[in-house]
């Protein structure tokens, strides 16, 4: 289970490897259900976006599977700990397989870094196991010497399919 704590960035501008390590670390924290640490990777004004439509551009007037700010994400994390969260009795588990994240853009002046990561995600509970495939785009920036997620966008390959419960995070 152990994973070293997040190391501070060596310089003001993150290297590609630091961006990649950050994205990989995020998936690992979810898989290990270390949700408080996971939430801490998000900037206060961050959004987690899972579009409903293929090539969706608008999260406001087009519906999404998720478009959640940090308050809603923290509610999810609290709910997962709840004594009467019956849909998590027993708890779900999940498993990420990531392709090496690619650094799509880096703009140190704007403090904006974008990575693109194809993933396979497995979520399981009781006897059911579901496999999802997605492309994850991370919009990152540096705050007080640490990388933070400003926007995480999860584009499911079958975003418009009928799903059963998806209870954890891709």
């Amino acid at each position: 289970m152990s994973m070293v704590a997040e190391a501070p960035l060596k310089n003001a501008v993150p290297t590609d490897q630091e961006l990649i390590d950050f994205v990989v670390r995020e998936a690992r924290l979810i898989d290990q259900q270390r949700f408080d640490e996971w939430l801490d990777m998000y900037a206060d004004d961050a959004f987690y976006w899972m579009p409903l439509e293929w090539n969706q551009t608008d999260p406001r007037l087009t519906c999404s599977l998720m478009y959640e700010d940090k308050l809603l994400l923290s509610i999810r994390v609290e709910r997962l700990k709840g004594a009467r969260t019956f849909s998590q009795k027993p708890k779900s588990r999940c498993h990420h397989v990531l392709q090496t994240p690619q650094v799509d853009s880096r703009d140190a002046a704007a403090n904006s870094y974008v990575t693109w990561t194809p993933i396979h995600y497995v979520e399981t509970r009781l006897d059911e196991q579901a496999l999802y495939a997605a492309w994850v785009t991370h919009h990152l920036s540096v705050e007080n010497g640490k990388l933070k997620i400003k926007l995480k966008r999860v584009d499911l390959i079958n975003c418009d399919a009928a799903f059963g419960n998806i209870q954890l995070f891709m």
């Binding site: 899972m50 519906c63 599977l65 478009y67 419960n165």
Partner: peptide, 14 residues
């Protein structure tokens, strides 16, 4: 709709 009726909705999970 997405907070209450989506397959990713915590209310829907309940």
């Amino acid at each position: 709709n997405r907070l209450i009726n989506a397959p990713t909705s915590i209310v829907g999970h309940d």
